[in-house]
Design a protein around this nucleic acid. Sequence first.
DNA 1: CTATTTACGTCAACTATATTGACATAAATC
DNA 2: GATTTATGTCAATATAGTTGACGTAAATAG
Lengths: 188, 188
Amino acid sequence: MNDLSARKIAEPAAVVAWRRAAAEAAATTTSDEGALELVELFFFAYRDFVGDADRLLENYGFGRAHHRVLHFVSRRPGLAIAALLEILRITKQSLNRVLKQLLEAGFVEAREGVLDRRQRLLYPTPQGAKLARDLAALQTARFLKVMDELPPAARGAASEFLFAMIDSDERERVRAHLACAKAAGAAP
Amino acid sequence: MNDLSARKIAEPAAVVAWRRAAAEAAATTTSDEGALELVELFFFAYRDFVGDADRLLENYGFGRAHHRVLHFVSRRPGLAIAALLEILRITKQSLNRVLKQLLEAGFVEAREGVLDRRQRLLYPTPQGAKLARDLAALQTARFLKVMDELPPAARGAASEFLFAMIDSDERERVRAHLACAKAAGAAP
DNA sequence: CTATTTACGTCAACTATATTGACATAAATC
DNA sequence: GATTTATGTCAATATAGTTGACGTAAATAG
């Protein structure tokens, strides 16, 4: 029932039907009704997207908050507290509780900054890096499957679409952040 | 700074640069690194997407939970409790707190089911319908702006992409739900 | 060199959203 | 008449967040 290889064969009926409906709805311009559908689709898509990781996190006694911290620390090793707070948009008090747990459990470690010794730069431990990879694998698997299901022409569009959904005054920051993460990920 | 009309002219630099990068990254197949970027873009996009509504909800002393209930009740008037619980994937105890507040504040009303008198069918009051419209307007505005920024060929792809992101065994349900909401919305 | 600012930690009280578990009621159904 | 179903409710608990106040060490401005 949950077999991935079977899905490709068993499921396209809904996808095909949807593709037709979507194409009709968005043929020329997007209507208000079409936009309302997108609102709901976005809600359902995000719900299922985070659901994958939630189930794995339970085994470690962690929640979504831990996941987000571990993810961004792993993607950007050497991240300072302030930078992390800005990404997550939470208060330092809220971060501190989950971060402390990750530090104590040995999934993240903090090193004194070399340029600025007030900073505590965050790094994943080997254990933390492994969990981050496992979590990321679940989520990238969903995207890779989606890309496989989508017609090739629509693949780049997904990325453009998501980027356009971000507040315009935040996009540069996000782009810089992604570039930084890409550089960090390429090294080891 | 937050002027919508100005954005169209002031902002496309980032969008254009991104479009090129996205096209390159997803030219043939989507790599693991590309999928990781999508994971983060999805996070940031959702964060900003719900942020709009959050600010409006504050004026009413409501939170996201109230928003979700009000949204689905407004989109599907006559929704039964059990159906709403399945959509939201929360427990009835959790729903009850939020729903009670919406009922007391006069944004939602419950009527006894005619076919099954055990059911409490939920309807938005005129006041609730107005708030739901205002909230939806914020979110559809974001989508409409995005669709405007995107090349026409990419517009249908957004909908397809989001639909494909939903758990495959949930898609039929979502599709049915959307069809129902569309029918309800078309009437008045 | 002193004064201020910055980066961070921490204690405390509180809110919002969710959970599990147990029990209650009325209506529908077998 | 017995059971299942749709819903409500009380209680305890967990998670994730908030505001506000205060502390400390290091960087930086005067």
